[in-house]
Amino acid sequence: MIEVKDLHYSYSKQEAPVLNGLDLRIEPGQWLAVVGRNGSGKSTLARCLNGLFLPESGSVLVDGMDTAEESMLYPIRERVAFVFQNPDNQLVATSVEDDIAFGLENLGIPREEITDRVEQALSVMRLADKRDKPPHLLSGGEKQRVAIAGAIAMASTYLVLDEPTAMLDPLMRLEVIDSLTRLHREQGLTIIYVTNIMEEVLLADRVVLLDQGRVAKDCTPAELFSDPAYLIEQGLDVPQISYLAGRLADAGYESLRGALAVDELADRLCRI
């Protein structure tokens, strides 16, 4: 479990705090989406979860380990893997398999075990045929999958992703989403998914909306999307179907409110 208690963080003393007394508990096995407008503190929160940023006050506990304790930092990062937004800027090594091994090398894991774990991560992420490729010859989606493979190799239990598909085109986005769904289902990986793409929020069990560095709403995706006006007020996208459902509900067809998918809305429409 990850417990965030009364977390405060600011980039500099002159600026307003980015995180302002944030409380959050993330249970293992969950898929949690984190949304909020630019500047709401999403990315900062994500970086506090693995100790890249340290709390100004308050605390972040990962399975009981405090990120503020320096000796705990590496055990925490082993458990909480991170995938960044820009696929180009997070691959360190000159080939796919070397990059997957990078984290394991840092942990001082014996060579034979690295080989086994890299092999397994390659096969889980279906990257075996790309093992020798240099990063610059991979597509954006493949680069993100390599980053995720690195996390699997570390045997992390939590995976924090900071807008991992923001720079990808829809096809590659699906590729990344598919592998995450599989990992979540098959390996019970806990996923903390920062995003601004509302279609991706639908994948989550739970969504947390941040506003001015605090949790403004903590609910299921369906609940969040049933109120398009609130989403717009929060500077978020409204998925077309939710918007349409809301628009029709406002015109007097209340039973349509909250429909999330094309089929669901069609079903409900046919029942009128």
Partner: peptide
């Protein structure tokens, strides 16, 4: 940041795969 997130801390105690 990406290197830190993957527990990089220089050459000491590091395996060369």
């Amino acid at each position: 940041q990406a290197m830190e997130a993957k527990c990089y801390r220089g050459g000491a105690g590091r395996t060369r795969w």
